[in-house]
Amino acid sequence: MQFQSLHNKVVMITGASKGVGHAMSLLFAEKGATVYAVARSEGLLKALAMSAENGEGTIVPAPCDITQGQEVEALVERIREEHGKIDILINNAGLGFFAPVHELEEHQWDEMMNVNLKGAFLCTKYVVPHLIARKAGHIINISSVAGTVTFPGGAGYCASKFGLMAFNDILMQELKPHNIKVSVICPGSVQTHFGGTEPKDYSLEPEDVAYMAYQMAAAPKHVILNQVIMRPVVPQPK
């Protein structure tokens, strides 16, 4: 399979300050893309950008609260003014709080829905018109295995990720006639201390998920990798 080059591609990645988003930003820049790294922490984004200074591409710190429509709209316009286009949007930002339904705090529920679902909606809403105008582009949503199966204690997180899966499917249907690709990755446990839990030593590495996103983005023009579920290999007892 002949991969497309990411040179001269403009990529917007949310949740870029740490974990999977951090790894994706570095990899896409290494492959030659101009990456707008989006998160709320400007300090972490500046450190990320400095760590990629010797790569073929560049990382541009882009502080933004993706739950605020005006901030997202302004960022998208900034990218278009600076580069004239956005080629790839990766909706990666996400967080999780885990507890039985009756113990889950209202603000925790709201924050998961705002970041995991509303944030993806707002970024997509403001990027899509520019992709449609060019009849080209790719949106990659980072969901979770928790968007395909449920588990006790995961009511809010699963609800947000199941919602993202539905959002992804509808987006794929709406944008297919405009020659815009839509993909989703559903990782299992990743070594990121997500949700305040200690990762298992056999969990996926952030770079594993980043490489899958790269493969999706660089796939031949006639190929869409719609959905990939990634799980770590669990060591068997000896």
Rank of each mutant, 00 (worst) to 15 (best):
K46H: 10
L48Q: 01
L48D: 05
A49P: 11
A49V: 06
A49T: 02
A49W: 05
M50K: 09
S51M: 04
A52E: 03
A52I: 01
E53A: 01
G57P: 14
T58M: 09
V60D: 03
P61Q: 03
A62V: 07
P63D: 03
C64M: 05
C64Q: 04
D65V: 07
T67W: 12
Q68F: 08
G69L: 09
Q70C: 08
E71I: 10
V72A: 07
A74W: 09
A74E: 08
A74P: 11
L75P: 14
V76H: 11
E77W: 12
R78W: 05
I79N: 08
I79R: 10
I79W: 08
E81T: 14
E82W: 07
E82V: 11
E82G: 11
E82A: 15
G84W: 06
D87Y: 10
I88K: 08
L89I: 04
N91Q: 02
N91F: 01
N92C: 08
N92Y: 06
L95C: 10
L95P: 10
G96Q: 04
F98H: 07
A99Y: 12
P100V: 01
V101T: 13
E103L: 09
E105G: 09
E106D: 14
E106I: 14
H107E: 13
W109M: 15
D110L: 13
A120K: 02
A120E: 01
L122Y: 02
T124L: 03
K125C: 13
K125T: 12
K125I: 12
Y126A: 12
Y126V: 13
Y126C: 09
V127R: 05
V127W: 07
V128D: 00
V128Q: 00
P129G: 12
P129H: 13
H130V: 06
A133Y: 04
A133W: 04
R134M: 01
K135F: 06
G137T: 05
H138R: 05
H138A: 04
I139R: 00
I139N: 00
N141K: 05
N141W: 06
I142V: 12
S143C: 07
S143P: 09
S144V: 03
G147A: 03
G147C: 02
T148Q: 12
T148L: 15
V149A: 14
T150V: 09
T150G: 15
T150A: 07
P152K: 00
P152I: 03
G153V: 14
G154N: 12
A155R: 03
G156S: 10
Y157D: 01
Y157H: 11
